[in-house]
């Protein structure tokens, strides 16, 4: 018996409705929100969450997790910034280093979890501390601003025409995210890597029995996550005037929360990059939008926590009802 494929069954569709609803509410009730600069600002701060979200979707599909993405992102941004500032490394190389560090930590996570068999939360909790420690060894560093030499990297996310007050800024990063979303959704659904990620999350033994090298793919899942954390570091550096050591813990919540809102299953086997995109958008709307309608910024943390629980509970209750048939 095939399930009715109505749109209402797709959590992503409901999430999209919620996202649009939120935007409408903000638009109607907040004069500030209607300003172009506000929307720009919100988008600016969404890119690093979005990139972390794309990356961590893969471990979550395998019923694992990567808790080191928040501190990792800040760590790589600090290291990169320090190299630019103190060692005069060109920004392009620093960006590459961010990505390489992300991949390296991702590989470490992958080996701890996929090969050595540590539970994902304890392994990534530890690498979270380690990256935080590494990051703390650096001083607070700003990456070059738009006007300074090397500041071209800002234009990856935001194009600026003209200068001074009258400058027009265009959020090209948003479209970049859309493109990445399409690419990664393709990877998830149409490549061996994506296919086996889902298979491992759904039934690891059956996948192994079918002759697939699950250890290899399990490790790759975390490497991909690390890669995106590296990218997120660049996006983070682009919007943070001065990256502070010791920060970052808690940033992973926004990304992970967004992935769950987007419909990933708490027990693994299902996930969608499109869902992650919409979910992270909702989290960002809540994050930056709440002050516009009068709620303190700290409420955002509480709400993110509650949103995560609700999203997971919905998934659990759905499963419970299906099993009771």
């Amino acid at each position: 018996m095939t399930k009715k494929k109505s749109l209402l069954n797709d959590q992503r569709f409901i999430a999209l409705i919620i996202a649009i609803l939120l935007m409408v509410i903000y638009f109607v009730f907040s004069k500030e929100f209607r300003k172009y600069s506000s929307i720009l600002s919100m988008l600016d701060f969404s890119y690093y969450d979005m990139l972390m979200g794309f990356g961590v979707t893969f471990p979550l599909i395998t019923a694992g997790v990567d808790l080191s993405i928040g501190t990792g992102m800040v760590c790589y941004a600090l290291v990169g910034g320090t190299l630019v500032r103190n060692n005069n490394i060109p920004v392009a190389v620093a960006m590459l280093i961010c990505i390489l560090m992300g991949v390296a930590i991702g590989l470490l996570n992958g080996i701890l979890i996929g090969v050595m068999g540590l539970a994902p939360f304890i392994a990534t909790l530890s690498t979270c501390m380690i990256t935080r420690g590494i990051g703390s060894m650096c001083n607070a560093t700003p990456w070059p601003t738009l006007q300074q030499p090397g500041g071209w990297f800002h234009s990856i996310f935001k194009l600026t025409f003209g200068s001074g007050r009258g400058a027009f800024k265009f959020p090209i990063g948003f479209f970049l995210m859309l493109v990445l979303m399409c690419v990664m959704e393709f990877v998830l659904n149409h490549t061996k890597f994506g296919r086996y990620t889902i298979a491992i999350g759904s039934n690891r033994e059956a996948t192994a029995l079918s002759g697939i090298n699950v250890k290899f793919y399990h490790v790759m899942v975390y490497v991909v996550c690390g890669f995106f954390t590296g990218l997120a570091a660049i996006a983070y550096a682009a919007v943070t005037p001065t990256v502070q050591p010791g920060t970052g813990a808690g940033l992973e919540m926004d990304a992970i929360g967004g992935v769950f809102v987007g419909g990933v299953s708490a027990t693994g086997g299902y996930g969608s990059i499109i869902g992650t995109f919409i979910g992270v958008m909702i989290i960002c709307l809540l994050k930056t939008g709440l002050p516009y309608i009068g709620l303190q910024a700290n409420w955002q943390q509480i709400i993110t926590g509650v949103v995560l629980i609700v999203a997971v509970l919905i998934d659990i209750i759905k499963k419970r009802r299906a099993a009771a048939v």
Partner: peptide, 18 residues
């Protein structure tokens, strides 16, 4: 049964030799 529930029928039949 050694099937991966979240994949489709076709994906299960050809798993490992797509």
């Amino acid at each position: 049964l050694n099937m991966v529930g979240d994949l489709t029928v076709a994906q299960n039949i050809f798993i490992g030799r797509e």
